[in-house]
Write a protein that binds this DNA or RNA. Sequence first.
DNA 1: TCAAGACCTTT
DNA 2: AAGGTCTTG
Length: 321
Amino acid sequence: MRPQKVRDHWSDWQPLAGWQPTPATLAETLDGGQAFRWHGAGDIWTGTWSACVTQLRMREGSLEWRSPVSLQTAVSATLPRYLGLDRDWNALTDSLPWRSDAHLAQCIAAFPGLRILRQPFGETLLGFLCSATKQIVQIKQMVALLAERHGVEIRWNAVSGRVQSASRTPRSTLATPNDDAPPCHQLPTWEELAVIPEKDLRQCLLGFRAKYIHATARFIAARPGWLEETEALPYAAAKARLLELPGVGEKVADCVLLFGAGKLEAFPVDTWVLKSLARRYGLDGWKPAPVAHFGRTHFGPLAGLAQQYLFSWERKFGGGR
DNA sequence: TCAAGACCTTT
DNA sequence: AAGGTCTTG
């Protein structure tokens, strides 16, 4: 008889100092398009990165977290950096040119405490390689399928109290992951992705993106250390290297550097930022490249942070059109 | 140098 | 039409 899979219980809720977002700002930060592995249920957000699983909630205006007991050490060691608690976001936001930019001021007021996440670099790259002409819900679906079908299982073993990885998961027969089930798979690494046939990737609803992910995986797997070196480079050099990857253009490269490497000078120009600059800054008809140049000069060295406020506001309040 | 189209699939 | 990129002409 197979040993029964035992899940340990969750730790007690613990306060998380250094960030007091509104519920709306918390939702926008976790599930507004920076990351694709957070799921909200009631007032609890469940998120996954690397081999970590954690939950967040607001209580009396303060942020609390918990994780499976066996993952607690790993989560407590990485959660602060993931959420950007090691940076002074109030000071960073204050140094944006909101005093001379009424629209930016309005965006900041609408999302008080908005943060830029610092996700694992490789996982960020994978997420945004899935993102071309897709909406957030669909990107989350693709990423969930990649993890469920091709990622190592994250075990929450109460008996051993240790994380046991390296057990390959059986291919799921489900077409879609159960949103109520706790997430229990890591994203596949680039080394793992490199040996997955493109056909199998397409089964994860990736469409033409499967070809990019496959080719990028082969590229990275053939160059040990390439990803880590890229993350460590200054913005311009890191971006030049990311642009070598098939399927990575200006926008994806900037998203990876902003959300996966903490480079606040990255200014991704997607359709929402294009709309924002066209409608609120009079840049109607401008192409992405000139808009990016305008953004960097107008908003300065923290343009990526400004971009996130503009993006969130335009998506939530700007109207479709 | 640049404006279309193609590329997968789903809402 | 959807939070792009790559390839054409």
